[in-house]
């Protein structure tokens, strides 16, 4: 069964088709990667799917429901979570609080109870904190839990974004370049984390430039070029596709093996 389907999706900015007629679908537990040169429209596609932008053609369905017109918060409450390429951290809050915000959709919304600080709210805070700590453990951030998030290193912030997204207990997780700017050790860590998340049944939509990571973890890969789908298939198929080699790897035939760029 398809969890998320993207059908003929497109958007223009000032006459330029940033994303043009893109279709694909993902099942639970699957790791689906989108690759392509800079400016191919990967992040724009993410923003369309997560409701930050509104498409001007096509639609997105989540478990069969059309969600193309829903704002990000509505998508989040339907089980879609994401991270951001250019880090959108709550920099003034503690690391633990950042992850607690991820759990927002599972918390009560009774403002009066919040103002009065009823025991039920205190109990909820404790539950939220305990659960947040589990995700901090999972992403090896427990030792910095009480630090102000703004003071973390780049690699830690990347993991914090994943922890916050995971905290919403999503069915589908969109990761926008989780390994960008990370060293090989950190990248290997993220590799491991992605695989373990997928194993729990969460579908993962991954945008990443690190070809070793992409080819290693993905079930399927979609190649985007100038907003359009160039190829889609298993990692090794895509890597052998001549038009992909031509467009994506340029004319450097020496890199035709495709496992690094």
């Amino acid at each position: 069964m398809n969890l998320l389907s993207v059908e003929h999706l497109g958007i223009s900015f000032g006459g330029v088709r940033a994303v043009d007629d893109v279709s694909f679908s993902i099942s639970p537990g699957e790791i689906f990667s989108i690759i392509g040169p800079n400016g191919a429209g990967k992040t724009t596609l993410f923003n369309l799917i997560s409701g930050v932008y509104r498409s001007d053609m096509g639609r997105v369905t989540l478990r069969g429901d059309d969600v193309s017109r829903l704002p990000p918060e509505a998508l989040a409450s339907r089980g879609l979570a994401r991270t951001f390429q250019n880090l959108q951290i709550f920099a003034r809050m503690s690391v633990e609080e950042n992850v607690m915000v991820g759990l927002h959709r599972h918390e009560t919304r009774n403002v009066l109870a919040h103002l009065l600080g009823l025991p039920s709210v205190m109990a909820e805070n404790r539950r939220t904190r305990d659960e947040a700590r589990r995700y901090l453990d999972m992403l090896h951030l427990r030792q910095v839990a009480d630090e102000v998030a703004g003071s973390l290193s780049y690699g830690e912030l990347k993991r914090l974004e994943i922890a916050r997204a995971m905290a919403s207990r999503p069915d589908i997780l969109l990761l926008d370049e989780p390994a960008a700017g990370c060293n090989p050790t950190e990248t290997a860590e993220i590799d491991e984390i992605i695989v373990s998340i997928a194993r729990t049944g969460v579908a993962i939509l991954l945008v990443e430039h690190d070809m070793k990571l992409v080819m290693g973890v993905s079930d399927r890969v979609l190649v985007l070029n100038q907003g359009r789908v160039l190829a889609e298939g298993a990692p090794d198929e895509v890597a052998r596709n001549p038009s992909v080699i031509d467009a994506y790897l340029g004319h450097d035939k020496g890199a035709a093996g495709g496992d690094h760029v």
């Binding site: 990000p72 918060e73 989040a76 409450s77 951001f84 959108q88 951290i89 920099a91 915000v101 927002h104």
Partner: peptide
């Protein structure tokens, strides 16, 4: 937590539901 979060990043706050 939500109101402090939206101060730092509205888009991330919305994406967190």
């Amino acid at each position: 937590r939500a109101l402090r979060a939206l101060h730092d990043s509205e888009v991330a706050a919305r994406s967190a539901g």
